[in-house]
């Protein structure tokens, strides 16, 4: 039986609803320390919401979210901001500060949280930008970058403070094949070289399965299954198999709940 300290994040019986819709219903997820964990599932199943719950940008209706043993939703405002200094998050849009150039965006966490001298900040920023292949773009403004470049600058910024926990929200969307390959290797490399724990939220099956040590498949408000990628690939569970094989319809419905298709199409004619 693994110790609780083997898990950096521990979601216990978490329920989260948005309006009338239940996004998570009594979900248990444990993220092993030092590994890359992939959270997979169809679009709209709450993968990004899960990251926002871990980062306490959203609060669950019930349940506990332990990060390094601290129940994140119960922390006070100041404790929460202190806890977040040990987390890094790569947003889907990059979320760069539009009034700062690339260099200043990456330097931002260092300037606000450290007292490092300017030459050391410069070295660290160049180091991080070199890692994502954008050392030559230091003076560009965010609106001069492509979507993929923005994501890489955001990644350099997210790892500027060498966080313990790195969360990636759909990192592979919109990347060209070269950047995709670089990014996949980079996530693996950063995780191993810096001793991070990474959570990769994605619906890109091949890329995520290729780097993840452990996978969770979520859908329909529940954890459909979890295990090592090979285990899940060969799973007998029809819901997991449907997702892993990319079958359009099955136990996990492709369609958002709606009335019968034919009935709705004929409704107008009947009224007429």
């Amino acid at each position: 039986m693994p110790e609780s300290s083997d898990f950096i994040v521990d979601l216990q019986q978490v329920t989260f609803t948005r309006g009338e819709r239940t996004i998570f219903n009594n979900v248990d997820i444990r993220i092993p320390r030092g590994k890359i964990t992939g959270i997979m599932g169809p679009s709209g199943c709450g993968k990004t919401t899960l990251l926002r719950l871990i980062g306490a940008q959203l609060r669950p209706d019930s349940g506990a979210i332990l990060v390094n043993g601290q129940n994140i939703p119960q922390l006070g405002r100041e404790e929460l901001f202190a806890a977040r200094q040990h987390m890094g998050m790569l947003f889907q849009s990059g979320a760069l500060f539009t009034d700062l150039n690339v260099f200043e965006n990456v330097a931002f966490p260092l300037r606000v949280h450290t007292q490092l001298p300017e030459d050391m900040i410069r070295d660290i920023v160049l180091l991080k930008l070199q890692a994502v292949g954008l050392r030559g773009a230091t003076q560009l403004m965010p609106d001069e970058l492509s979507g993929g470049m923005k994501r890489r600058v955001a990644l350099a910024r997210a790892i500027a403070l060498d966080p313990e926990l790195m969360m990636y929200d759909e990192p592979f969307v919109g990347q060209d094949p070269i950047s995709m390959g670089v990014l996949v290797r980079l996530i693996r490399l950063l995780n191993d070289a810096l001793g991070l724990t990474s959570i990769v939220v994605s619906h890109d099956l091949a890329e995520t399965a290729s780097i993840a040590d452990y996978l969770y498949v979520v859908g329909d408000g529940q954890v459909l299954g979890h295990g090592e990628p090979d285990e899940l690939m060969n799973s007998d569970n029809p819901r997991i198999r449907q997702f892993m094989q990319g079958e359009p319809d099955g136990p996990v419905p492709f369609h958002f709940p709606a009335t019968d298709y034919v009935d709705e199409l004929l409704q107008k004619e009947r009224k007429a």
């Binding site: 202190a82 890094g88 500060f97």
Partner: peptide, 14 residues
């Protein structure tokens, strides 16, 4: 809308 506020929060800046 461009998640800059969320980004600040996750950097640990209120």
């Amino acid at each position: 809308a461009t998640e800059q506020l969320s980004s600040l929060e996750m950097i640990g800046v209120d």
